[in-house]
């Protein structure tokens, strides 16, 4: 099925009579993109499923207020990113964990291998990405895997493109360093 043009989709999403059908189309169009973005942040499938559902429920709730100052895609990315980071933050606070513990949890989820299919080098790469500071990890994933433009990432994270480019380049060098020490 060909995706509806964004303007048409938005008009339908904001029309009460067509909202449900249009939202169904939106979910079909963007669910995989959002799922894998969230999955790279929270790693575990069950957690991803929860965060994704919350993301889509919030999109449904707030789509009437969306004023198209960014694309629907970056708006959804922003909600998903916020929901995923909030999830990790609540998890950290709820379990009295610090950042290192959370990173260890994420590494543990990765090594458990549930719904993960990667050889040793792919897993090492994921471990390297998990070792990055949060913002660098987000930027690296969105640029390297999702191939978003810096402008889009800037919209999502509310950070200047200059800072994003620096973050990405730092991330690449740190990952390389990690892989070198592990080789």
């Amino acid at each position: 099925m060909v995706a509806l043009k964004e303007q048409d989709l938005l008009a339908k999403l904001q029309d009460p009579g067509m909202k449900a059908t249009a939202f169904h189309q939106l979910v079909i169009t963007y669910q995989q993109m959002l799922y894998f973005h969230i999955r790279r942040i929270v790693i575990d499938h069950e957690d991803t499923d929860d965060v994704l559902q919350n993301t889509l429920l919030k999109a449904w709730k707030y789509i009437d207020q969306f004023r198209a100052q960014s694309s629907i895609k970056t708006w959804l990315y922003r909600i998903a990113t916020n929901e995923a980071l909030t999830f990790l933050s609540k998890k950290k606070k709820a379990s009295f964990q610090d950042l290192n513990d959370i990173q260890n949890d994420l590494r543990h989820s990765l090594s458990e291998g549930k719904y993960i299919d990667g050889d040793e080098i792919q897993l090492k790469l994921q471990q390297a990405i998990l070792s990055l500071p949060e913002r660098q990890r987000l930027v690296f994933n969105m640029r390297y895997y999702d191939e978003l433009k810096y402008d889009e990432i800037a919209d999502i994270l509310s950070v200047s493109t200059g800072a994003l480019k620096a973050s990405y380049h730092h991330a690449v060098r740190k990952i390389e360093e990690y892989l070198k020490t592990q080789s």
């Binding site: 909202k19 995989q32 889509l56 719904y115 993960i116 790469l125 895997y145 390389e176 892989l179």
Partner: peptide, 29 residues
Amino acid sequence: TRFLKNIEKKNIFQVPEAYFDQLPGKIAP
């Protein structure tokens, strides 16, 4: 880079069977 550039860019994360077929229904109003 020496190591990173030689790693295949691949999505290693999988989903349960029919997950994306069922999700739109779960999110339906």
